[in-house]
Design a binder for these strands. Structure first.
Lengths: 200, 200
DNA sequence: CATTTTATGTATCGATTGATAAAATAAAGC
DNA sequence: GCTTTATTTTATCAATCGATACATAAAATG
């Protein structure tokens, strides 16, 4: 059954992608509705009808970001045969993703709303939760490695997970500062240099 | 010779400290003049007479931050007898500083204006320069360690400096997410676990 | 056809943004 | 005491903020 009423004249997904780019570049608070409507090619009423609010638009933009940019970074965590390969891939994929375009990128989830006093506490908390989810996913992968016998029992999985998550977050800052792909990859390599000592 | 005219009725340094706290909590863009005047206990004209503009106030706040919060973190870099101790102290002092209060802290220089499209490109670039200065200071300390014979010639000082700077930047994000002092110290320890492999 | 429903374009809402003009006030030099 | 200089208070500036009211356009339904 087809929709009633006048159909929308724009590609919702394409508009969402444009919104994601604006939020990625400016962050939640600094991205104005004027910026967003201009980039998306919409008038404000169309935007509000399709996405509800600036907050709703950002939530969808983040979900879209996770499904597109984030997928290649995190999906290998579970698939990799060893925790070491999982972590190494995470950092390398991060380095590649953060230097994929001409513009400074970094992670939308890390940089989208970094201030404790954000215009939208819900947005701030949502991004924070997503970041902490990343730490937890890492920790769970390491604990699985203990079960698998890859890592000894006495290894501090929480500490190791926190360490590699911290490195990954730091890569966002370095990427925004214009660090090259080679530099970020070398940082990933340096972080992996600690692996043996941390897991034996 | 004393000042002519009516002297100001407020403590300029105390007001600057209050402004620093507001910027630290909200970032440059999100801190409104209303926030600042309220925290500093001033009327707008007094603020503008004393600090010139929001941008000027932020610059002074950052300089004040470096002189107070940042001093204990970076001054040991040159003093420490070995590069290893210098880097270890940097990370540990960072972990302590970022968890010194009840509120999520992190670094003002890392988090004060993280967006590529900031309301003030000059502010954004100034903070970026300060971050890159940190990387350079680390690298120079490592190169000195090569000269001193602490580290072999073939060590990649730039890569190592980039790695530890990345960890330090990442600590700001983790601190904002509420990571405990013990967690941040353990991250610092994990980072130092890579030292031997990176320097031999 | 007319009716209903939804989307669009124009214009604008009250609130807040960074920043001042004008006037009142206070302290120093003469 | 008088002048000079600077600060403080009050009120407000134009611009922008996120979000809508309203009228019109385009599709499905009857």
């Amino acid at each position: 059954m087809a929709q009633r009423g006048r159909p929308r004249s724009f590609d919702r997904t394409a508009a969402l992608r444009q919104a994601m780019e604006v939020f990625w570049q400016k962050g939640y608070d600094n991205a104005s509705m004027a910026d967003l409507t201009a980039a998306m090619g919409l008038n404000p009423p169309s935007l509000y009808a399709a996405f509800g609010s600036k907050e709703g638009l950002f939530r969808e933009a983040v979900a879209f970001y996770v499904e597109t940019e984030g997928k290649g970074i995190w999906e290998e965590i579970a698939k990799a045969p060893t925790a070491r390969e999982a972590v190494a891939h995470l950092l390398e994929a991060t380095a590649l993703a953060y230097t994929s375009g001409p513009e400074p990128r970094g992670c939308l989830i890390v940089l989208g709303a970094p201030q404790p006093e954000c215009a939208s506490p819900a947005i701030r908390d949502d991004l924070k939760k997503r970041r902490l989810d990343g730490v937890r996913i890492l920790e769970e992968r390491l604990e699985r490695a203990v079960t698998d016998g890859e890592i000894p029992n006495h290894a501090d999985c929480a500490a190791i997970a926190n360490f590699y998550a911290t490195v990954q977050h730091g890569l966002s800052i370095r990427a925004r500062d214009g660090a090259s792909r080679e530099t970020l990859l070398s940082v990933a390599g340096c972080a992996m240099a600690a692996w043996d000592k941390l897991t034996t």
